[in-house]
């Protein structure tokens, strides 16, 4: 069946089966930053943002269900040629090693900060507990989210490169 998905602000017409997972549809549309790491909805490397404020595991949603929603993936985070503060902060704080969990982690953190702009370390660990990372031990990811929270609270334009 033909569906239209709005991904990162761009409408894409896709030919899918009803059983096509959103994760596969996104990746087949050329946006391979969204990864897949399990079959049990456990790892969160497939996390994308729906309608700005909700994070979903795109492996646990059929592509057809995403029609009518705004999907944001890691490729849609940098704006105007500038990295999103979360991307900058993951880079600054060594919040990634192999990078496989990173897109999902950044999308989950993005939503976390929408609901809690100034989280404590414990709240960050809690909020990211639907996303696995096998490399970093999470400590630098937590630091990255803290840095991003600070950057986002500074007035626009004042976000200094750390």
């Amino acid at each position: 069946m033909e569906i239209t998905l709005k991904i990162n602000g761009v409408e894409k017409k896709l030919n899918v089966e009803p059983r096509t997972l959103l994760a596969h549809a996104i990746r087949d549309a050329g946006l391979t930053g969204t990864h897949i790491g399990c079959d049990s909805s456990s790892c969160g490397v497939c996390t994308v943002v729906l309608d700005g404020k909700t994070a979903v595991k795109s492996c646990t949603m059929f592509a057809v269900m995403a029609e009518g929603h705004e999907i944001t993936t890691i490729e849609g985070m940098a704006q105007g040629g500038k990295l999103h503060p979360l991307q900058q902060a993951f880079y600054d704080q060594h919040g990634l090693q192999c990078g496989y969990c990173t897109p999902g982690m950044i999308m989950a953190a993005h939503v976390l900060l929408q609901h809690n702009p100034n989280p404590t370390e414990e709240e960050i660990r809690f909020g990211l507990s639907g996303n696995l990372c096998r490399c970093t031990g999470y400590q630098n990811i937590v630091k990255a989210v803290q840095q991003a929270a600070q950057m986002l609270q500074q007035p626009a334009g004042a976000a200094a490169d750390d």
């Binding site: 391979t32 930053g33 990864h35 890691i74 490729e75 993951f90 880079y91 496989y100 990173t102």
Partner: peptide
């Protein structure tokens, strides 16, 4: 900072399934 990171943080890593 790591020289490999810029591609990963924007979703432009190139893993096998990509």
């Amino acid at each position: 900072k790591r020289k490999e990171d810029p591609r990963f943080i924007v979703g432009k890593g190139n893993y096998l399934d990509d």
